[in-house]
């Protein structure tokens, strides 16, 4: 295969990766931005989203599109509910202390992952895509559904953008992010906002997972990769900066797609992880950080 088609395939793969990643990373970023905590269980919310999507489409006989559309609503809702409960029951008790939260969310990671192991089993299951058509390039074929994931993710991101910047809910979130005490003075129930934001972050991870589930198999250990990738994106983008995170998701998704076609994927992961750690040490405001901390 010539270099041109090779790059085309790599970019397509990268775009699909970036599309899903941006949703998931946006969730992590939102939580860090408002609550100032790192949610290590974020990848597990992604996994639970995929498991719910599979279960919904498995239970609903008929056209796979039906199951997919239902999953698109049900999965984020349920995952949001779990996350909200976890925030109220666990994280509130430790006052969202940053270090304690990491330990607590590690605990949540295991509880969620292992509960899914008990309920869903250890097998990797395939979810049928809601629609499937084949795109034939002269050099290789590509799944039409995969391409549509890019568009769907873009649409969902626009919706999130709208909520954050144009609605009252978004205003309250931003107010809480900027100044917690002041928000409280103005009568914003900060505790509830925290719970809602934590849930919203998890819901975004779940949304990405519903889009991803028909592409990859659903498995109880699938959460680790999105977690690490989202970490990378959020750090490069500048912790808590949403625009930075989106830009970073695009760059990281694309470069991961391209690098891992030229080199071994393991090596690609090693290099990117190492670089990100160094960014965090030497340039903690991130490469695309729009707000200086």
């Amino acid at each position: 295969m010539g270099l041109g088609p090779f790059l085309l395939l790599a970019s397509l793969e990268g775009l699909v990766q970036a599309a899903v990643l941006s949703l998931s990373a946006l969730g992590l970023c939102l939580v860090f931005g408002v609550l100032r905590v790192v949610n290590v269980a974020h990848g597990e919310f992604h996994m639970v989203g995929a498991v719910i999507a599979w279960s919904v489409s498995h239970v609903l006989f008929g056209h796979p599109l039906l199951g997919f559309l239902v999953a698109l609503f049900v999965a984020p809702l349920l995952v949001g509910l779990i996350a909200f409960t976890a925030d109220r029951v666990i994280l509130r008790k430790i006052n969202h202390n940053p270090e304690a939260t990491i330990v607590a969310t590690i605990g949540m990671l295991y509880v969620i992952q292992q509960s899914v192991l008990i309920g869903f089993g250890p097998d990797a299951r395939a979810m049928e895509p809601p629609f499937y058509f084949h795109i034939n390039f002269p050099w290789f074929g590509y799944s039409g559904y995969k391409l549509s994931v890019i568009l769907m993710a873009a649409a969902l991101l626009l919706m999130v953008w709208h909520v954050l910047s144009r609605t009252r809910l978004g205003l309250i979130m931003r107010a809480t992010q900027l100044d917690r005490e002041m928000a409280q003075v103005f009568g914003i129930p900060v505790g509830w906002v925290y719970g809602l934001v934590f849930a919203a972050g998890a819901m975004l991870a779940a949304l990405g997972a519903v889009l991803m589930a028909p592409i990859r198999q659903v498995h109880y250990l699938m959460g680790l990769d999105p977690l690490l990738m989202s970490f990378i994106v959020v750090i490069i983008g500048g912790l808590g900066s949403i625009r930075g995170a989106l830009l970073a998701a695009l760059v990281i998704g694309m470069s991961d797609g391209i690098i891992s076609m030229f080199f071994s994927p393991t090596l690609a992961k090693m290099i990117s992880t190492l670089l990100v750690a160094l960014v965090l040490i030497f340039k903690p405001e991130g490469l695309f950080g729009l707000r200086k901390s």
């Binding site: 084949h134 390039f137 990859r216 198999q217």
Partner: peptide, 18 residues
């Protein structure tokens, strides 16, 4: 491994009808 079905599907997508 857990990804075998994805592997075979993606192989089919890659080759397409060529």
């Amino acid at each position: 491994g857990p990804g075998v079905l994805t592997f075979v599907k993606e192989m089919g997508q890659f080759f397409g009808t060529r």
